[in-house]
């Protein structure tokens, strides 16, 4: 597969959130606004990129038996770097994402890609894969975040979008709204892919 194919598969066909249903915790927790969604998406993409590159480079050096602990160490190093850099240069976002930044460590997407892809592929392919998966994840977060922010708060990226007589349905930015949005969007994605394949 070429660079493009590795990249595009992460966006729809193997979208981590909607097709593989991985890493749901941050997907639901931080999507109360589009801004948080973008921040989380970028942070996860950075970690994914860093860990994929290092794991692909070291794949012949790391013995199979200590594979998992090595991956955990590499991933959590990148997570901590992200955590520190965000605290230093984007303190508000760091505050809004809270413990979900360190929790990127246990995001199944990153461990999943390390195990299923980067440990078996060349560095170039791993970079493409990380970009594709990261973009797919970020887009999914933005989609959920914008639905929730629009209906729950009447705004997008903080700007009022809907007409002023619109009364926001606060439930959408509360926890139940997260489950509902995710469930309906998953149903929609299933519907689209069923239509496509038939």
């Amino acid at each position: 597969m070429g660079f493009g194919a590795e990249f595009y598969k992460g966006i729809f066909k193997e979208n981590p959130s909607f097709r593989l249903v991985l890493g749901i915790c941050p997907t639901l927790a931080v999507t109360t606004s589009v801004e948080n969604a973008i921040g989380m998406g970028l942070a996860a993409t950075f970690v994914l990129l860093g860990s994929n590159i290092f794991i692909a480079l070291l794949r012949n050096f790391i013995p199979d038996k200590v594979r998992i602990p090595s991956f955990i160490v590499i991933i959590s190093t990148f997570v901590t770097i992200t955590d520190l850099v965000m605290a230093a240069y984007a303190p508000d976002l760091h505050n809004a994402l809270g413990i979900f930044i360190p929790l990127i460590v246990v995001n199944c997407i990153i461990m999943g890609r390390a195990e299923a892809f980067a440990s078996k592929s060349s560095t170039g392919a791993s970079i493409a894969d990380a970009f594709g998966m990261g973009t797919g994840f970020t887009l999914a977060l933005i989609l959920i975040g914008s639905s929730r922010e629009l209906i729950g708060n009447g705004t997008l990226l903080g700007f009022p979008i809907l007409f002023s007589s619109f009364k926001p349905a606060v439930i959408m930015i509360l926890p139940p709204g997260a489950f509902l949005t995710m469930g309906l969007l998953l149903g929609l994605f299933n519907y689209i892919s069923r239509k496509r394949s038939s």
Binding site: L58, F61, I62, P63, V66, P69, S70, V73, I74, S76, T77, T80, I81
Partner: peptide, 13 residues
């Protein structure tokens, strides 16, 4: 191997 990786991680952090 594991020690080398951990040291690298700790140093860069």
């Amino acid at each position: 191997v594991l020690t080398i990786i951990c040291c690298g991680a700790a140093l860069s952090l």
